[in-house]
């Protein structure tokens, strides 16, 4: 338990070292990984897992995953990326993921935040309100 806590603390410190201007830097991440490979801290697997989780969460904050049913044009993606960049105050890129269960419409996920405007979502809201 104490070892896991120490691994979490080390991973958090390494993650902070991986940020440049609040964004994850690929060079810093490479440096951190090299450092871990070279020095081999106690419980290296736990440290690496925690570090990966921090980096994944941070990357998800700067990425808008757009789930869609049907065709989504590049202009729509750019518009969504620009809107989210403006909303969160940091550079956010948009990526697509097909989701036929939506029937029609979009679901945008930025980190833990979810924005949805889809036929499936409206039908779910309708079923919940009845």
């Amino acid at each position: 338990m104490a070892a896991n806590k120490k691994a979490q603390q080390l991973a958090r410190q390494l993650f902070k070292l991986s940020l440049v201007d609040g964004l994850v830097s690929a060079d810093r991440v490479s440096g951190v990984l090299g450092y871990l490979e070279k020095l081999q801290p106690a419980h290296p697997l736990a440290v690496l897992r925690a570090y990966q989780r921090f980096v994944t969460i941070e990357l998800a904050k700067s990425q808008a995953v757009v789930e869609h049913a049907g065709v989504v044009s590049d202009s729509i993606l750019q518009t969504i990326a620009a809107s989210m960049t403006k909303k969160y105050g940091r550079a956010i890129t948009a990526s697509t993921r097909a989701n036929p269960k939506l029937l029609a419409g979009l679901r945008v996920r930025v980190g833990d935040d979810v924005y949805e405007s889809s036929v499936s979502g409206q039908l779910g809201t309708l079923a919940a309100s009845v």
Partner: peptide, 9 residues
């Protein structure tokens, strides 16, 4: 669907 996606966007 495309039309609905534009409206959703």
């Amino acid at each position: 669907r495309a039309s609905y996606n534009e409206t959703a966007a």
